[in-house]
């Protein structure tokens, strides 16, 4: 019993390698670049709308004139119902089902890395990429907004104007809140991803789920069900633009997404642990 010393790969190196693996795919780079177009297109659309008489639109669009720092928040809420869940589902689909499709998941499962750790690394990759995507939209949105609409502070829905620092704080808060919601969707997508080897199934199932949840949220006869739906918490996130900041709804929606993350990752772990090579 001499030469068999267990060589363990340090966790940091595994995480780095996972991120490099994702970022080196050309489709990742192209996808992120197209996400940058969303705030630019939204900004140009609103810029034309502001030119006319009256407010540019309902909700946040109404206060965007001369108030460019609202654009990143507006764009994130615009992307949250469909686009960002799709982004989260794509990362999750590539993570497990994509690897299974190429036959590389088998290699990973045989390697001397625990399956829970493997899931952890994959989940870290999905989470980081979701954060990167949301942050990218917000940064491009802030720059576009500042160029098109100007404004030094941020006018809130309550009619008060925040200083530049406080406005940046609100944008960062929005990024974090929206990212946690994307993680909630992506965790469920990871569970689906662990069960199939077709990435398309993961994306289709996740998007169908999001759409069905949104439809269920419309019927007032089902209001007993609404507190359980992750999509129904998304409308309340606009509280981030009120002053003073009401935190109750923000905590509730974050806790709701947290429950989805726990359920999704647990299901994925269960499936991965019982999966035969």
């Amino acid at each position: 019993m001499s030469a068999l010393v267990a060589t363990r790969a340090p966790l940091g190196r595994q995480l780095r390698s996972e991120l490099r693996w994702i970022l080196r795919r050309p489709r990742t780079v192209i996808g992120l670049a197209s996400l940058c177009l969303v705030p630019i297109l939204a900004g140009i659309g609103l810029w034309f709308a502001v030119d006319g008489d009256g407010p540019a639109g309902p909700g946040l669009a109404g206060i965007i004139a001369g108030n460019g720092l609202v654009l990143p928040v507006f764009t994130l809420f615009l992307a949250l119902p469909l686009l960002l869940p799709l982004v989260g589902a794509i990362w999750a689909a590539d993570g497990l089902a994509g690897e299974a499709q190429h036959g590389t998941l088998r290699g990973l499962m045989l390697s001397p890395v625990g399956r829970i750790r493997l899931l952890g690394i994959k989940a870290f990759g999905v989470a980081t990429m979701s954060l990167v995507a949301v942050t990218l939209i917000a940064v491009v949105g802030a720059i576009t907004g500042a160029v098109l609409f100007g404004g030094e502070g941020m006018l809130t829905l309550s009619g008060s104007t925040l200083s530049f620092g406080a406005a940046l704080g609100r944008i960062v808060l929005t990024i974090l809140l929206v990212t946690v919601q994307v993680w909630g969707v992506a965790a469920v997508a990871m569970a689906i991803s662990a069960c199939t080897e077709h990435p398309l199934v993961v994306m289709a199932a996740t998007m169908a789920g999001v759409i069905v949840f949104a439809v269920l949220g419309v019927f007032s006869a089902l209001d007993w069900l609404h507190p359980y739906l992750i999509t129904s918490a998304w409308n309340g996130l606009v509280d981030v633009m009120r002053d003073p900041l009401p935190t109750e709804e923000l905590w509730r929606s974050t806790a709701l997404a947290g429950c989805y993350i726990v359920i999704g990752l647990s299901l994925a772990a269960m499936r991965l642990a019982t999966k035969d090579n």
Binding site: P227, V262, I263, L265, A269
Partner: peptide
């Protein structure tokens, strides 16, 4: 246990 905990949280 994780699934049950998440569902309980909901």
């Amino acid at each position: 246990v994780g699934v049950v905990a998440g569902a309980t949280g909901l």
